[in-house]
């Protein structure tokens, strides 16, 4: 990282994907958690980690108090329900196989009590410090990529069934604090997705509809004629940042770019969603009714996706952003 001090340069290099070995440090820099100035990094880390541990001291015991217990109970119910399915991290070799059965080895990460506790604390502390939104289901998913990327720093080779509690306590605590701060930075940019009535999502789904009507009239009309509303499938795309539609390895790659792109999570994501929808135009146009379309749109076949598919998607999103951002209607095909 020493050679990539300028954060502009770091963004430029990271946009097309970050090598696994340097991903943890790069994410911490890109998210704004760590300062660009290398000399200040260690002290910043120490200070922020201490700050997070102090939050836990200060707030975590209040989780069963009357005004916090609903929040905590909800989080405690939700964490064990996070499916391993969203955590499929196929080893590289398997990425080349197209037909990966769903029963392939998974990481039973969320069956591990220590992991569940970490997620509970991160989400509870975040929720009570952000009362305007509080904890909304979907936010729990947003911890996962940070946590997994930071844990991988300590794992060589095989990742399946890795027992997180085999890591030293201190390492695990630092991973927890770093995940909390990086997730907080991410959420700062999209908080209106989770405030009352979720105005950020409503706005973005409308924008998606408008954008698709301009870039692919045929797909747009087909959805309209079949009475499929964008909110019916794209709500989740916004609420969970496409994490439910993609394997985790793809989300991680996607976030390399989101963190390199200005307003990646809040704005560029819209173009990614548009590119993602249009990517399935053939399948969409083949479905002749509402039912077929809804079933397709909530189960898009991305199980075999890897870096290549994400790169293509991102390139298309980038093109759309420049062709259609604030562009007048004469861009209409």
């Amino acid at each position: 990282m020493a050679s990539l001090n300028g954060s502009e340069e770091l963004r430029k290099f990271s946009w097309s994907g970050i090598p696994r070995q340097v991903r943890p440090i790069t994410w911490k820099l890109l998210s704004g958690y760590l300062p660009a100035n290398a000399e200040r990094r260690e002290s910043t880390l120490q200070r922020k980690r201490a700050e997070y541990f102090a939050f836990i001291e200060q707030y975590y015991d209040s989780r069963n108090d009357e005004h916090h217990q609903d929040t905590y109970r909800q989080i405690a119910i939700d964490i064990p329900r996070m499916t391993p399915e969203s955590l499929i991290l196929q080893p590289k070799v398997r990425e080349i196989h197209i037909d990966i059965p769903r029963t392939n080895p998974l990481i039973p990460l969320f069956q591990q009590a220590s992991v569940q506790k970490i997620f509970e604390r991160i989400l509870f502390i975040w929720a009570i410090r952000h009362p305007a939104s509080g904890y909304v289901q979907g936010i729990n998913d947003l911890v996962t990529p940070f946590f997994v990327v930071f844990v991988f720093e300590y794992i060589e080779g095989v990742v399946e069934n890795f027992d997180v509690s085999s890591l030293p306590d201190e390492v695990l605590q630092n991973i927890e604090a770093d995940s909390f701060w990086c997730m907080s930075k991410l959420l700062d940019g999209i908080q209106d997705n989770y405030t009352f009535a979720q105005p950020g999502i409503q706005k973005k789904v409308k924008a998606l509809q408008e954008l698709v009507s301009r870039i692919d009239e045929q797909v747009h009309k087909h959805l309209q004629q079949s009475e499929v509303e964008y909110l019916q499938f794209a709500f989740r795309w916004m609420n969970n940042l496409l994490m439910r539609e993609l394997p985790l390895r793809c989300t991680i790659r996607l976030w390399d770019t989101y963190q390199s792109e200005p307003d990646g999570f809040s704005h560029f994501h819209l173009y990614v969603c548009a590119a993602f929808l249009v990517k399935w135009r053939k399948e969409i146009l083949e479905e002749k009714d509402f039912q077929g379309l809804m079933i397709l749109l909530q189960n898009l076949p991305t199980m075999h996706w890897g870096n290549e598919e994400i790169s293509v998607l991102l390139a298309e999103a980038y093109r759309l952003k420049y062709a259609f951002a604030d562009a007048p209607n004469h861009y209409k095909r």
Partner: peptide, 26 residues
């Protein structure tokens, strides 16, 4: 056994028979 949280709404459908008539449930 472990079903991930439903976000917003999800859709399902099936055909059933009542009184000898096909009825589609959405």
């Amino acid at each position: 056994p472990v079903h991930d949280l439903t976000i917003g709404v999800e859709f399902g459908a099936r055909m059933i028979t009542i009184d000898g008539k096909q009825i589609k449930l959405q």
